[in-house]
Design a protein around this nucleic acid. Structure first.
Length: 909
DNA sequence: CCGTTGCATGAACAC
DNA sequence: TGTTCATGCAACGGT
């Protein structure tokens, strides 16, 4: 060793207490530097010290730092810019932090340590350095390395070949620079780092990864040195500058993180921070008992800030031990935190009895917790758990996916427990993600923040997810309820409430609820599947359908199935904005949407298809309201009512949904329907409607088209005499269609026969054709009713209805009574049709035996005073599906429902 | 009925 | 293939 000559030409020392590696040589080896020069090199002061008078100094164009461009000793400290000039590695790195993939960045600046390697027998290179005693690195926290360096008993002689691969990825140990290898300048580590540099020259940090594995492997095998600096796994605040400087030496001191745990991508987590001191680095095991068995996933990724936070003002040294991402079980109510076996055995007191012993652990707030550290026999092994962690977990407000970090405070030996929230994402997503296998979602902040990268669509659905959450408080559409707020009277027709009353689009579930739903074990979660919350989730998916809109600017292809026209889209539907549908006492239907900018609620036509994003400026219907500066269309009270009623509807619908599910489970639709009829409960009918809701994009809840009212699949054919709600609906619907068919036929024939007169005919035609387009008071209550209901069908069904097939009912297998409507219109003579068509519709209906429809017409105007029990059932169906009913009406529903079978029977007869 | 406890099971993972 | 560990689940006890 003494035969070496310091390769610093200025120095040329032939002897040194410690030889240090310097810059990479062309041969791939490294310059040997005496202790003094090597130290200067490590401290980035080599050129300052020895070459200050030389030429070649330039300044970093970013920070102005002087860099000796003409010297190999500084070659790794700068980066030549494509545009000319140079950047110091620090500035270059900051740029790359924004341009480099997270994992690359993290890897580039992560640090790690392999204790085993550090203590492996010296290789030739190590032997060259042998004999130099460990010494505290300047800038280290001053803790005796012995205290913090794991004495890997049994590992010292461990063949290198047994070194775990992951450890080979973390050869920092051989360099003595542990977790803070990026924070300190390791002389010995330069054996690897410089080698990297030798490969990469001036390349940026992110360019080294292609060879990192091989490089590090070679380092691991070649650069052990027991005398290399053994850095404690602790960092003092005073080291920050050092760290920064070492980071600036990143290309030299970079070491490699372990491959990120499969379930986590923690290495990404801090890339957005851009703060060097907050770089989350995986700190490999620092305790000897770990014996290299600790999987990288448990390596503490604790930032220096966190360490600082934990240590506080004390002079104690914080030694990160390990961390663990909380599983659902860990964070659940059971209060048991499963400890990694290796960690438990390495860092916690040895226990021989399953009962274990109480363990005092202090949290970051200084509060001391006592957990029972114990184990369960498991096969031939043990399973270590900390029991009684629930209070602590709750205190920290931790949940599955969050990370708890265990550290030890030396010299007291006190155990510390820190945590790291995994939530940079909204709680909704957290909640959902928590249910996703951990292999799917990572738990560190960046993993969430990286979601848009991994799931680009998800970001687009974030609003949807929130909507889902919001929908928890909303209800589905079909249950109806009327409410009256002064003069503000609505029939709430559809769910909504994606936003709170204050306009914020926030999850409706209270924080406590969210926490509760998250911090539960899987078993409880499973149980919740049957609970309201889970039901709400299910309903949310149904709501999703409601939000589906036809693809923008895509014209549907019309296909005819059984003479019914349907719109088909080659592209999948898009998610539209949620809205609330209401119906005023006057029968006017409205749609309420919230501006994405100002969150004000605006009234819109009921048949307007809201795009996914909508602002006041898009309000082409009410120009006086097309600006965000215009006050909200709703008073706070009205909005409160609206949302409150919406919430109530949800509950009602949930109850109905449960009952429906039960009814379906029993495969007894009829009994369900009967029960519904007897009960006369709107909720029941609403539930039935739920099962018959949207089946294609433009169908809205309440759509009564032939598609949406079909019975649920798998339920088979209903008996022709079936009086279940579905069948009744179908029958009523069919009856309406037939009536309209006859009407139109009569009009057409009349038009043919009397081309130059019968202006009424064209009027009727117009009425029919436009019946679904706009809600407006009409002379014919039946038309108005139809208009009302089918407007909610969002036009698509109305299109179908407009194009009602000239078919006989035999073409419709809708489980309707075979004898129904046998009084076909085909037997009508032209003259009779003309005569009938000239009559008022009511008279027409009566003459055609459609007395029930007469009742319907009357019933449809029941809200204007006619007894509701005389209304035709279709009206009620429409109301049930689309509108709310007044409480009075609801009470009367029972009566009507009771009479409904009879009514249907009359219809069928 | 509900929460706790101790063990069992099996998927995921490392080797 | 063996190990780890997340989670299931039955037994048990308390209310």
């Amino acid at each position: 060793m003494d035969s070496k000559i310091c390769m610093n030409g200025v120095c040329g020392a032939t002897s040194s207490i410690e030889w240090k590696k310097g810059w990479p040589l062309k041969s791939g080896e490294f310059a040997y530097l005496c202790d003094k020069c090597g130290t200067a090199y490590e401290q980035l002061g080599f050129c300052d010290l020895f070459h200050s008078e030389d030429t070649g100094w330039r300044e970093c164009i970013s920070c102005g730092k002087r860099l000796h461009c003409g010297c190999i000793a500084s070659s790794s400290l700068l980066e030549l810019l494509d545009s000319g000039g140079i950047n110091c590695v620090g500035c270059a790195r900051s740029c790359q932090l924004h341009a480099t993939p997270n994992h690359v960045k993290a890897k580039a600046f992560g640090t790690s340590n392999s204790n085993s390697v550090g203590e492996t027998p010296s290789t030739s290179l190590g032997s060259q350095m042998n004999g130099s005693e460990p010494k505290k690195r300047e800038g280290s926290d001053g803790v005796d390395p012995v205290l913090v360096l794991p004495h890997q008993n049994g590992n010292t002689n461990k063949p290198i070949g047994q070194i775990k691969m992951e450890e080979a990825f973390h050869p920092a140990g051989e360099s003595g620079c542990t977790f803070s290898s990026n924070l300190c300048q390791a002389s010995a580590e330069s054996s690897k780092n410089v080698k990297l540099d030798s490969y990469n020259g001036y390349i940026g940090v992110n360019e080294i990864h292609g060879s990192q594995v091989q490089t590090n492997l070679s380092i691991a095998l070649s650069a052990p040195s027991p005398n290399t600096k053994l850095f404690p796994a602790t960092v003092d605040e005073g080291d920050l500058n050092k760290r920064i400087s070492s980071l600036q030496q990143g290309s030299r001191s970079r070491s490699l993180l372990p491959k990120p745990p499969k379930s986590t991508s923690a290495v990404r987590s801090e890339t957005n921070a851009g703060i060097i001191s907050q770089i989350r680095v995986a700190r490999p095991p620092v305790e000897g008992r770990i014996k290299n068995q600790l999987l990288p996933r448990y390596w503490p990724r604790i930032t220096d800030q966190e360490l600082q936070q934990i240590s506080g003002d004390s002079n104690s040294t914080i030694i990160p031990l390990f961390e663990k991402v909380l599983s659902a079980s860990d964070a659940g109510r059971i209060g048991r935190l499963v400890l990694p076996k290796a960690c438990a055995e390495a860092y916690f007191p040895p226990i021989s009895q399953p009962e274990g012993l109480p363990l005092r652990i202090q949290d970051v707030k200084g509060k001391e917790w006592v957990f029972q550290f114990r184990f369960w026999p498991n096969n031939n092994s043990r399973m270590y758990v900390l029991e009684g962690v629930t209070p602590c977990i709750q205190s920290m407000q931790l949940q599955a996916g969050d990370t708890v970090t265990f550290s030890r405070m030396d010299p007291e030996g006190k155990l510390l427990m820190g945590f790291r929230k995994a939530s940079t994402v909204n709680s909704t997503q957290e909640t959902r993600l928590s249910a996703i296998p951990k292999s799917v979602f990572s738990t560190e902040p960046t993993s969430f923040s990286a979601m848009p990268e991994n799931l680009p669509l998800m970001s687009g659905y974030s609003g949807l997810l929130q909507s889902f959450k919001g929908s928890r408080e909303s209800s589905m559409n079909l249950s109806s309820k009327h409410f009256n707020s002064g003069d503000f009277s609505w029939y709430l027709t559809e769910k909504n409430e994606g936003r709170n009353a204050d306009g914020t689009f926030s999850p409706s579930m209270p924080v406590s609820d969210r926490k509760r739903s998250r911090n539960i074990g899987s078993k409880s979660k499973r149980l919740l599947i049957d609970s309201d919350e889970a039901l709400e989730l299910k309903l949310s998916w149904e709501e999703l359908q409601d939000m589906l809109r036809p693809p923008l600017s895509i014209q549907p292809t019309t296909v005819t199935i059984e003479d019914h026209e349907f719109e088909e889209y080659e592209q999948p539907p898009v998610l539209g904005k949620r809205s609330i549908f209401t119906v005023r006492f006057s029968g006017e239907q409205e749609q309420w949407a919230q501006c994405d900018n100002c969150f004000k609620w605006r009234r819109l036509p009921a048949d307007y298809l809201l795009p996914p994003q909508w602002t006041c400026q898009d309000n082409i219907f009410y120009h006086s309201r097309c600006s965000c500066s215009v006050p909200d269309d709703l008073t706070s009270r009205e909005l409160e009512y609206l949302l409150k009623m919406d919430k109530d509807l949800k509950k009602r619908r949930n109850a109905a949904g449960q009952r429906t599910a039960q009814a379906h489970d029993s495969s007894d639709l009829d009994s369900h329907a009967n029960g519904t009829g007897v009960a006369g409960d709107v909720r029941e009918r609403g539930a039935t409607s739920v099962a018959t809701t949207t089946k294609h994009p433009r169908h809205r809840p309440g759509c009564s088209c032939i598609v949406c009212i079909q019975p649920p699949s798998g339920k088979g054919k209903h008996n022709p005499t079936c009086t279940c709600n579905v069948c009744l609906t179908v029958k009523r619907r069919f009856k309406t269609l037939m009536m309209r068919k006859k009407k139109r036929q009569s009009e057409r024939e009349a038009e043919i026969g009397q081309r130059n007169q019968l202006m009424w005919s064209s009027k009727e035609e117009t009425e029919v054709d436009s019946f679904s387009r706009q809600v407006k008071p009409e002379a014919d209550p039946s038309d108005r009713e139809r208009s009302g209901s089918e407007t909610l069908a969002r036009g698509h069904s109305s299109n179908q209805l407009q194009k009602l097939p000239e078919t006989s009912k035999s073409q419709l297998d809708l489980n309707c009574h075979p004898n129904r409507e046998d009084t076909g219109s085909s037997h009508l003579s032209m003259m009779s049709l003309l005569q009938q068509a000239s009559l008022p519709l009511e008279t027409y209906l009566r003459q055609n035996g459609l007395t029930s429809l007469v009742s319907e017409q009357q019933g449809s105007s029941g809200s204007q005073g006619l007894p509701p029990d005389t209304r035709e059932s279709e009206v009620r169906i429409h109301e049930d599906q689309c509108f709310a009913s007044t409480s009075q009406e609801q009470e009367q529903e029972g009566t009507k429902e009771n009479s409904e079978p009879d009514q249907s029977g009359k219809d069928n007869s």
